[in-house]
Design a protein around this nucleic acid. Structure first.
Length: 420
DNA sequence: ATTAGGG
DNA sequence: CCCTAAT
């Protein structure tokens, strides 16, 4: 659903087609499973594409150009948002004027502000649209804004950090420095509090069930007093802003100087076939609400990882359905896709330095097994009997050569744990 | 419904 | 985790 919102319209048709094909091929079960999604698809078919669900209420980008004292609204199709923002100069940009002393000198061309979702009927007049936008802007301003800082695409939260420590120096990449205007308050949608929490698998050491899904809804009532611009309050929304963060590899500042005037941004308001909604911050429980609720994060526990490794060692890396059943048969919240993804991250985790790993540390012993199993199963094992490609000596050591055509082939048990 | 990969 | 193209 989220993705649908982000999809360009022309991608919708194929989607529906797939669905139909899938239904005819897999029966009503598939039909019902996908109906929900497709219905949503249909509803959002004419909506303004948006990057993430959490931002689906802000599909247009309002940018303030300080220098020109003008504001512009742009609506860019998904993937283009970041580029458009930066490319259009709608983002904060900084220039290094002089590299003499230890002072960092720069100018802010513009600020990046949170997205804004505008929903108006087709027969809306330009004039009323302008007013609507103005209201939206006033709403944002009324709710209070705080300044966020981005360096090299990463948000800088530590206010105590010196500019130098943050990598902001006359010699640093001032081009990657950006500022954003963010709402200082993020009311939480009450309807989202009671998220269903499936039964935990026998392995799950539950402790991560407290996080509430962040709400994209912004305060509609303006007169809210500018609450304390605490950095921590927006922690959970950082990712959102990362989306809008400047790309280090995407210089946005042409050798021009400050004063940028006029707005080349355009306004694109998709026609809404349904009822008219002059109001800006859309009703919380509308189209893209429940349907797109991101699942609560459930980090795999060590026990789960062990179960997964165990299963993969036996089944390989191409039968995630089976792996899921074997290792998480009773963990409804772990789908075979989840399991497959977890293996992917495990392989990655095992490949990086321990210092770079995050979350509950996974015993090295398990990570070793991950790597071994990964290697083993990625080299023509359990797969078609292709010509035995060359295996280096090292591989021979770690990956014992052995195979049988049985359907339940597995890694030679001798290997399991050989790398402790 | 599952698989396989990119996001 | 999400989203999807292919099976």
């Amino acid at each position: 659903m989220r993705k649908m919102l982000t999809s360009r319209r022309w991608k919708v048709a194929p989607q529906l087609k797939d669905w139909e094909r899938s239904c005819s091929k897999y029966g009503m079960k598939s039909f019902h499973r996908n109906r929900k999604r497709v219905c949503a698809l249909e509803r959002c078919r004419f909506e303004i594409p948006s990057k993430r669900r959490k931002l689906c209420h802000y599909s247009s980008v309002v940018a303030y150009d300080q220098q020109a004292n003008s504001k512009s609204i742009s609506n860019s199709p998904e993937k283009g948002i970041k580029r458009d923002i930066t490319g259009a100069g709608a983002s904060a940009s900084v220039r290094n004027h002089r590299k003499k002393d230890s002072n960092v000198k720069f100018s802010i061309k513009s600020f990046k502000v949170p997205e804004l979702f505008i929903e108006v009927p087709e027969n809306e007049t330009v004039g009323s649209l302008k007013r609507t936008v103005m209201e939206a802007v006033k709403t944002i301003l009324g709710s209070g804004l705080r300044v966020g800082m981005v360096v090299q695409g990463k948000k800088v939260r530590d206010d105590n950090k010196t500019l130098q420590q943050a990598g902001i120096s006359q010699s640093g990449n001032l081009d990657t420095l950006g500022f954003t205007l963010e709402p200082s308050s993020y009311p939480v949608s009450p309807s989202l509090h009671s998220k269903d929490l499936p039964a935990l698998s026998p392995y799950v050491a539950d402790h991560e069930l407290t996080r509430l899904p962040p709400s994209p809804i912004m305060e509609l009532e303006l007169p809210s007093s500018p609450s304390a611009p605490s950095e921590t309050r927006l922690d959970e929304h950082d990712e959102d802003y990362h989306e809008l963060a400047l790309s280090p590899t995407n210089p946005i500042d042409p050798p021009t100087d400050l004063a940028i005037s006029g707005s080349r941004a355009l306004v694109v308001v998709s026609p809404l076939n349904a009822e008219a909604h002059p109001v800006v911050p859309v009703n919380p429980k509308n189209r893209c609400s429940e349907l797109s609720q991101r699942r609560t994060r459930r980090p795999f526990s060590v026990a789960e990882v062990e179960a997964l490794v165990e299963a993969v060692e036996q089944l390989g890396t191409g039968r995630w359905r089976d792996v899921k059943i074997r290792a998480f048969e009773y963990a409804d919240h772990r789908t075979y896709v989840d399991v497959k993804d977890k293996w992917k991250t495990l392989v990655h985790t095992a490949s990086i330095a321990p210092q770079q790993r995050r979350g509950e540390p996974v015993p090295q012993e398990l990570l070793d097994r991950v790597l071994i199993a990964h290697d083993y199963w990625s080299k023509q094992h359990g797969k078609h009997q292709a010509e035995p490609s060359k295996m280096t000596e090292a591989q021979m050591q770690n990956i014992g050569a052995l195979e049988n055509n049985n359907n339940s082939v597995s890694m030679p048990s001798k290997m399991v744990g050989s790398a402790i």
